[in-house]
Write a protein that binds this DNA or RNA. Structure first.
Lengths: 304, 304
DNA sequence: TCTATGCATAAGTTTTTCTTATAGTTTTCA
DNA sequence: TGAAAACTATAAGAAAAACTTATGCATAGA
């Protein structure tokens, strides 16, 4: 353990050493580093102590580097420069908005953002886009674009998709049970239902759906609560029952006839849905991606 | 200016970052670094601030590195490891006494040590020997073998050569003026004399020589004071006059008949001469060189 | 739902680093 | 030769940085 800590000399001392080697005197180095001569002198001493190696022969007024110092200088300077270069690169990327972080709700990411990601990267090649999946988040992120789900009435949030859900199942399941878009809502009462674990109660669930259709909530046995929407769809495709489908996310699958809408009932809440929210200090790149996603969502809605 | 300082992130933070990336959690990193979780957490924060780049997406309990973090980790870790490696190498060299610093009087170095240096390196190939020339030094050096000139009565000093000087000149000059080893000391009185600037008064000079031979010190006009012994010999070889020759240093040149001793007078002071002195904490390598030089000096004396 | 694990933040303390002042050495200049 | 200037090392008090303890909050697992 302590793989590096115990072996690395103090960086400040290295910087002081580099400057002294390059400029020849402690005083000049101190000037460049906007520090004082004793400070640099002590740094050198501490470096010599750390390396337990004499780096300079002190002859009263001037210093003469030892062979060890010359060697170490030649080794370490390029490393410091590279390191500074990498750090600068990162800062520049950030400064110029080339690096964009997106924190996205899992379902939205899986069924909407990720399929589109390659295209986004092609369309905005100057950006480095980083997507992190995260459910149950609508808090502040300091440096990331947030794609979340929840209440839409918020000055900083912009709506991507209003919440609209319907009952869906696989083609196979629909054929087996004679279900279709024209089925009456009553037919759904006795079907096995697939549930998502919506412990945070932000989401519409089957209870809402039945209440909205003036039907009694059927008693459920052996309820399976799935942790994320991806699992729900996975179970759905295995024809294990009916699930609630968020229209905006399922649109492609419905159009491709991979899934089937059951009954014409669409339950929606205008004040809930998927939203996009800028970081506190959006970069130019973030602004680009923001607009790109807003546009993409608007286009998708048109099909609905 | 500020070529590196302003661009480099704090090293401590880099070490914390490296450990967190490698181990996955702040707590584990803190444990490895024998620090505390909040300390590491703050380091990460400071690094993010320094790079003005988000490195981790915090999701309550765990951290997820951003693309920037992964990239930076891949760039920086090898640099840190190399740096640690170089530092370790230096420490190991020192530890095992592979690195020896010699601070040597200019004259002694030029006429005795340096001609022998290649041979020393061949004979002690495991050592890295670093010679620094320095006149007028008999003070303490923390980490270097000192070859100096001065008083010999000192518990830590060991005599290399007792001070013995004679008058010398070039072969050409001796032939022009009919001088030889058999010449009487009186013949020297009217010859042009070459002087070394011995402002520190440790050295025998022409005044001493004349006094020692019971001769009046001849009035000098256009006295040229040369700063180092090398210049003196250079002038001597240009047949500009007579100079005082330190026997131990001139021995090779006298044997090769490049220079000629004039008169048989040899002035010596038993309590002065060239000495060798160990550093405060001599390494094994230093001890080897010490003995090597003592032996070499002893051998040389035999010819005298 | 309760507990364990893990991160962030705040506040006070400790450690490190820096600055000011001083002394010593060497070079330069008169 | 001697005084001034340039440069470094060291000591001690001051400033800054880092760390630790305590606490709150969020998530994961039972």
């Amino acid at each position: 353990m302590h793989r590096l800590l115990s072996k690395l000399p103090p960086l400040k001392a290295l910087i002081a050493f580099e400057a002294v080697m390059r400029l020849g005197t402690v005083t000049a180095a101190a000037k460049e580093l906007t520090s004082t001569q004793p400070a640099v002198s002590q740094q050198l001493k501490s470096l010599e102590g750390n390396l337990s190696t004499l780096l300079f022969i002190r002859r009263g007024r001037n210093l003469q580097p030892t062979a060890a110092a010359l060697e170490f200088y030649a080794q370490v300077t390029p490393l410091l420069e590279k390191m500074a270069g990498y750090a600068e690169q990162l800062r520049a990327d950030q400064q110029e908005g080339r690096r964009v972080n997106i924190v996205a709700n899992c379902g939205l990411a899986h069924f909407w953002l990720l399929p589109m990601l390659e295209r986004i990267k092609q369309d905005l090649p100057q950006l480095v886009i980083n997507v992190t999946l995260s459910d149950g988040v609508d808090s502040e992120f300091e440096n990331a674009l947030l794609l979340g789900f929840g209440q839409l009435q918020h000055p900083l949030k912009r709506t991507l998709f209003v919440e609209r859900v319907c009952a869906i199942c696989s083609v196979e399941f629909s054929q087996l049970h004679g279900l279709s878009r024209n089925s009456a809502v009553q037919e759904i009462v006795n079907q096995p239902l697939i549930h998502m674990d919506t412990s945070d109660s932000r989401w519409l669930n089957w209870q809402h759906w039945f209440a909205n259709n003036d039907l009694p909530y059927p008693e459920q046995k052996n309820v399976v609560l799935l942790g994320n929407y991806h699992s729900v769809i996975s179970n759905l495709q295995q024809s294990k029952g009916l699930a609630l489908g968020w229209l905006c996310l399922m649109q492609d699958l419905l159009q491709d006839k991979q899934l089937v809408q059951v009954s014409g009932s669409i339950v929606s809440r205008e004040e809930y849905g998927y939203f996009i929210k800028s970081s506190n200090a959006p970069s130019s790149g973030e602004a680009l991606v923001y607009q790109y996603l807003v546009d993409a969502a608007a286009q998708k809605v048109e099909y609905a």
